[in-house]
Amino acid sequence: MTTTGLGSLPGDGIREWMKVLLEEVDIPFLPELPARPYGDMLSRAIALVTELAADLQPAGWRLTGGGDATASLDQRRARGVLREDLDVLEEYADGYVGPLKVQVTGPWTLAATVERPRGDKILADHGARRDLAQALAYGVEHHLAEVRKRVPGADVVLQIDEPALPAVLAGAIPTASGWSKHRSIDGPGAVELLSLFTGFGPTVVHCCAARPPIEVFTKSGASGIAVDISLLNAPGWDQLGIAVEAGSTIYAGLVPTTGVLPNQEQAAAPLIRRWRELGLDPELMKQVVITPACGLGYATSPRDARARLALLRKIVDVVGEAADA
């Protein structure tokens, strides 16, 4: 049983965080620091989309209709931040051997957030969202190759962040006017674009919404699923149980990202209780990865975030005892 975080962390100290992560979690990761300009998850994804040009508007990122040669100053800056972070990773992970995770905003969340050149979300245009997904997949493939080159001993795990996918499937993403919603996407359509990313190696899809579409994630070929355990309803637990028994790795979000920090027994209790209620084999609990409930980018301070990361290994001991009981 292992521990990791889910991507975002507070503050702007990439060097300090890289050192902490290599020491304090079992699966270190290249962090996103949204407090920095161009350090958020969307800017990170736009930096990877080298086949399409985009600029940053007051309302967010927008494709401009040109190719890479017409990339805006903002897009070039986002790429510069990512290169600097890779330099730090290479420096601090010199000689590292083991799992190493990188995160990227998924194609559906990106399509539901980024605008077309003439307005409204890319989600509205079938061809545009496919083009964006393919460009993102191309960029992710090269990004993973770069990480492997810089840290040759790493077994790279790709995390796809899809917080908006439940709303996309439900037809709940507002149009630009705000008077209507974008048409819902069916499950097979969602699987089709996600599957562009699951062939690059071990892949975990992360969605900390109340109703994560776990079946979509497993059908896309993802080997892992990351969810906020506190938000799962009964149907969600049923799907999670099916995924566990099919061999999926579960990234169980057990530590709240804000508020009072529970002790390890309190944090572990929801997972252990529901596992037993579903009648799942306790041995399968050993394939669980313990994580915060979601990203820690909005924790009150780096010290607070470190305390939440430190709690993860204490939870492992409690869950491990339950698995052996």
Rank of each mutant, 00 (worst) to 15 (best):
T64N: 13
V81G: 03
A59K: 08
D40C: 04
A45S: 12
Q75K: 12
R62F: 02
A47S: 07
L48R: 03
R83C: 01
G80H: 11
Q75M: 14
S43P: 06
S72C: 07
M41Q: 15
G66R: 04
A54C: 12
E91S: 06
Y38N: 01
D40L: 11
E91W: 01
A53N: 14
A69V: 07
A47M: 04
R77L: 08
L52M: 15
D74Q: 09
Y38Q: 04
D85H: 09
D40A: 12
G60Q: 13
R62M: 13
Q57M: 08
G39K: 00
T64Y: 14
A45N: 10
A78L: 06
V49R: 02
A47P: 01
G80L: 12
A69I: 04
R77C: 02
R83G: 03
G67N: 14
L73S: 13
D74F: 00
P37N: 02
G67H: 15
G80N: 13
M41V: 09
A71K: 11
A54M: 11
E51K: 09
E90N: 07
R62A: 08
G60L: 09
P58C: 06
V88T: 12
R62H: 12
G60R: 13
M41S: 12
E51D: 12
A78Q: 06
L73A: 15
S72K: 11
P37D: 03
W61L: 10
V81C: 10
D85R: 04
G60N: 10
D74R: 04
D55F: 06
A53C: 14
L48F: 08
R79W: 07
G80E: 10
R36K: 09
T64V: 14
W61K: 06
D68R: 14
E51L: 08
V49W: 01
